[in-house]
Nucleic acid binder design. Structure first.
Length: 600
RNA sequence: GCCGGGAUAGCUCAACGGUAGAGCAAUCGCUUCGUAAGCGAUAGGUUGUGGGUUCGAAUCCCAUUCCCGGCUCCA
């Protein structure tokens, strides 16, 4: 047996070290599980984004209650200070080893390794050995700060035709501080969960009687959505988009022409029969915008033609994947399709990126990650369209980002079959990333629908089509906003911007007058006249996450000024009505979150 | 769809084979009070739904709907 050297150049805390630590932790977990639950078969146990998992198959059905026991055993193993060591094996050696132990999944993996002609290595620590390509820490004693998090089902090799395995997830970090930070982040994420806040703030609901994945926007959520839509429409018009409306269903012939009936069939709701026609709910808006384009002969002078719509689409999603507002069956896309000439693609893509950055800024996202998904030239046949168009479009996508100095990741082979794209992942307030905005080329539909325009030289040409969505889905974007702000929305989005709280019944008249003035100034204002103590009124307003609380008591009325409390608890006294109005108005127009306002 | 876990008052939860309860919210009174919960009363439930076991089911069994954690997929 030849010892295998591990590449351990990377320093502690690096991505490589984290992966090694977590993967090592997975090995230790596999050992603990096999000791505690004899007869459990091991499969694979990789490091992932923030931790690791191991998939098992066995007679014992794992539950959350098992985790502390497994953790305890893991600690004992880790403290044993067992070095990790690897050794190359012959195929025969390895096969015998796993056969003796009845580890069928390992034998299957071994066959794969053999077929690919890769080295077969076994890695061990203490009494435990795994078929593994390596990547471990030096010793189990480095594994100290970890926690098992959850149990879940997972298909062997991710294929639903295969056996369902049991997966245990965990997280591991080099220091206690990092582990605690991560666990705190998970707690924080739980507290901000848009599904919880959606109920607490009365924003939206899902109704069992209506069906899963269908969203009911309540008055407060609906108002916020309206503000988001109005703002986006106004921005779109400024940028030369033209708003359109299209139907929610269309004859199946449309979907046959577009190709959706073949490549998107599994995600479409089934047919509705009406008289002699068959119709289907739209899963995408694209073909509708294409039909508007095609409604008459187009000239190069009209290009770029930017058609935008807040288009509601319906997609059949399998019941198990639905998730609050983030994954639903009916949702509204801020969809636009830009029809342009080849020489216009760079400026159009640039305009889309510009618009996207404006959206992020407006909603307080300062961090994002960009991905350019290109084709895999080795698989030429799976893609539609001319190679020259692909190359040109991909170059345009990259050039725009380069010119702006925006860092991006190139992901070859990730393009849709109909065109390359830029995806934007937003990073929210607690560091999680969300895929939202997308700018995609579509080489399919212009061809399928035989789109054309008359060029300057009188010839007929096929336009290029760029599909772009910035919010992506209003439902999803809204859900992310709720979590990003933890329900403390900036003033321009807050359903109730200010609430006037009276101390005693004496202040009713001045409070009503103040409310009227704020409303006249276009602010969304509420009034709390209940005969409750001020502390109770403050508490209720805080729980509603109202950004401005205006307290009106006898002293304020006598002085002719107001006492203002901000959502973050800061208080200001002696504020005049004019100051309050100016402050609120300025904050709304500049889309700021409540910030410094002199000294309390 | 699949694996696992759930569903009790508007919300958060208790009761786990023997008459279904609490806090908050709601309603009605009293209290007029200075920055996160004043006091009292009232009302609110075919325990998600349908079936079964049992003298007796929120509790045990089966089916079903929806929700949650994942797999897969994605806006």
């Amino acid at each position: 047996m030849n010892a295998v050297a591990e590449g351990k150049g990377a320093e502690a805390g690096s991505r490589q070290y984290l992966d090694r630590l977590r993967h090592s932790c997975a090995h230790v977990m596999a050992q603990a599980v096999q000791e505690l639950y004899p007869g459990t078969k091991i499969t694979i146990g990789p490091a992932i984004e923030n931790g690791f998992y191991y998939d098992f198959d066995g007679p014992h059905q794992f539950t959350l209650e098992d985790l502390p026991k497994i953790e305890k055993r893991m600690r004992q193993i880790a403290e044993g200070n067992h070095p990790f060591s690897g050794a190359e094996q012959s195929y025969e050696q390895s096969r015998r080893y796993w056969q003796e132990r009845g580890e069928g999944y390992k034998l299957e993996l071994l066959e794969g390794i053999k077929q690919r002609g890769e080295r077969i290595t076994h890695y061990s620590h203490g009494a435990f050995t795994d078929l593994c390509r390596g990547g471990h820490v030096d010793s189990t004693k480095e594994i100290r700060h970890f926690k098992l998090l959850s149990v879940a089902g997972a298909y062997w090799r991710g294929d639903e035709k295969n056996a369902m395995l049991q997966r245990i997830y965990g997280t591991a970090w080099p220091t206690k501080g990092q582990l605690d930070d991560y666990l705190r982040m998970l707690e924080e994420a739980k507290a901000r969960d848009h599904r919880k806040l959606g109920v607490a703030l009365d924003l939206f609901s899902v109704q069992e009687l209506a069906g899963p994945g269908l969203i009911f926007w309540h008055p407060k959520g609906g108002l916020m959505r309206m503000i988001m839509e109005d703002w986006l429409r106004a921005e779109a018009l400024k940028r030369g988009y033209q708003m359109v409306y299209t139907p929610h269903i269309a004859n199946v012939e449309l979907w046959n022409t577009s190709g959706h009936r073949s490549f998107y069939k599994d995600n479409m709701f089934t047919e509705i029969e009406v008289e002699k026609g068959h119709y289907q709910l739209k899963p995408m808006n694209c073909p509708f915008h294409v039909l508007i384009y095609k409604s008459r002969l187009r000239s190069y002078r009209e290009l770029p033609l930017r058609l935008a719509e807040l288009g509601t689409v319906y997609r059949y999603e399998r019941s198990g994947v639905l998730h609050g507002l983030l994954r639903v069956r009916g949702f509204t896309q801020d969809d636009a399709h830009i029809f342009c000439a080849r020489e216009q693609i760079e400026s159009e893509v640039s305009g889309c990126i510009d618009f996207a950055l404006e959206v992020f800024k407006a909603f307080g996202f300062s961090r994002y990650a960009l991905e350019v998904s290109t084709w895999d030239p080795a698989q030429r046949d799976v893609y539609i369209g001319e190679a020259s168009d692909w190359e040109r479009a991909q170059a345009a996508l990259e050039n725009v980002l380069k010119e702006r100095g925006l860092p991006y990741e190139l992901v070859p082979g990730e393009a849709a079959f109909y065109g390359p794209k830029i995806d934007v992942k937003l990073i929210d307030a607690i560091g999680r990333s969300w895929q939202l905005s997308t700018v995609q080329f579509d080489f399919n539909l212009p061809r399928k629908f035989e789109l054309e325009y008359i060029a300057a030289d009188g010839s007929r040409k096929t336009p290029l089509m760029v599909h772009r969505a910035l919010y992506g889905s209003i439902e999803r974007f809204f859900g992310i906003l709720v979590e990003h702000y933890a329900g403390h929305f900036p003033l321009w989005l807050s359903p109730v911007q200010a609430k006037v709280l009276t101390l005693t019944a004496e202040q009713e008249a001045p409070a009503r007058a103040l409310e009227a003035k704020l409303k006249a100034a276009g602010l969304r204002c509420a009034l709390d006249l209940r005969p409750e103590k001020i502390g109770a009124k403050i508490r209720d307003a805080q729980l509603e996450k109202i950004p401005y609380m205006v307290v009106l008591g006898p002293k304020d009325v006598a002085a002719g000024t107001l006492s203002v409390r901000l959502g973050d608890g800061r208080q200001f006294s002696g504020v005049t009505e004019a100051e309050l109005l100016e402050r609120l108005g300025g904050e709304v127009s500049r889309k700021l979150v409540a910030s410094a306002w002199g000294k309390p």
